[in-house]
Amino acid sequence: MRKLIGLILIFGFAFYMFTIVAAIVIPSDSSEKKSVGIDILQNSVRQTGAANAVTSIVVLYRGFDTLGEVTVLFLSALGIALLMKGGRSFKHKTEDESFILKTGSHLLFPFMFLFGIYIIAHGHLTPGGGFPGGVIIATGFFIVLMTSDVFKFRDYFLTIIEGFAGLSFIVLGIVGLFTPEKSFLVNFMNKGVFNTVFSAGIIPLIYAAIGIKVSSELSGAVGNLFVSKYGRRSENE
């Protein structure tokens, strides 16, 4: 019965995917529906100074939605921390990870960290931004966690960083209330030279805050899940 339900879901998915592919192959002419998109594409560079229009939508045009998303993520991480808290360190019961896997993962972690920082810092120039970069950093953290024999995990430091990043996001938004535009999340800083790293006003600062917040939150959530006293994998102190 469960396999039957799964197959029905897969047939629905197949219908959906082939519809999308057909829509790519046969382009439909619906220029009236895209008027908002055309407007943003024409004006976003002049209004925000960011080369990536998607970033200017996420951070400035719909910045309040992004604040809500960050809050949702914070609440879910808080729930994980409340439910799964317990252990502070773990030792693997069986140590059958190979030497190559352990060394390779520890060697890979700095590069993944650097790549995540690159994705966050170039969010307003190239595709990417705070959310994917934070997830990449958290995944690198998880790889180290998974292949270590003994790992001590303390989340005080992560909690402090996370709170600081969230607070700086809100403060950057509130500063906009004291500018001549008098609204939340106004791009009040100098826009700078187009298509350079230090440009687009407050967009890189907000994306840096989001990236730090997401990476520390998800690292803390993954660490809390992994070190938790519930389950069979870990031996707690």
């Binding site: 970033t55 994705i119 595709p127 931004g129 959310f131 994917p132 997830v135 990449i136 995944t139």
Partner: peptide, 13 residues
Amino acid sequence: DVAITEATIGSAL
């Protein structure tokens, strides 16, 4: 942008 987010969240996390 969506592709990077989908690859990191859906495929990794």
